[in-house]
């Protein structure tokens, strides 16, 4: 058994997530796409862990999940706060960085 399909699956999911981050207008949608990307990287991590017979990759996935939870919590708080400030949840209408 090889892990190649698992890694390929991770890559596909990552690209889909990237597509979502690039195209979604709703900030919550973008957050979801980011979740997708992180999930894809977790799959790849676990696949490599399996390939090497080394538990480090799994542990890293643990940590990633934990950090992701934190990120979602903070990210949603930011979304709500920005929403209060700008009265929109559309990422392309929040242009505070405009030069």
């Amino acid at each position: 058994m090889t892990v190649t399909p698992y890694i390929g699956l991770g890559f596909v999911l990552f690209s889909i997530g990237l597509f979502g981050v690039l195209t979604r207008r709703n900030t919550v949608g973008i957050l979801m796409a980011i979740e997708l990307m992180l999930n894809a990287s977790n799959i790849v991590l676990v696949a490599f862990s399996r390939m090497h017979g080394n538990l480090g990759g799994q542990l890293f996935a643990f940590f990633t999940i934990t950090v992701t939870v934190a990120e979602v919590a903070v990210g949603l708080a930011i979304v709500i706060q920005v929403f209060r400030l700008k009265k929109t949840i559309h990422a392309d209408e929040i242009t505070l960085l405009k030069g």
Partner: peptide, 10 residues
């Protein structure tokens, strides 16, 4: 060039 075959876990 990696060998993608599975190695056993502990």
């Amino acid at each position: 060039q990696l060998d993608f075959s599975v190695r056993p876990y502990p």
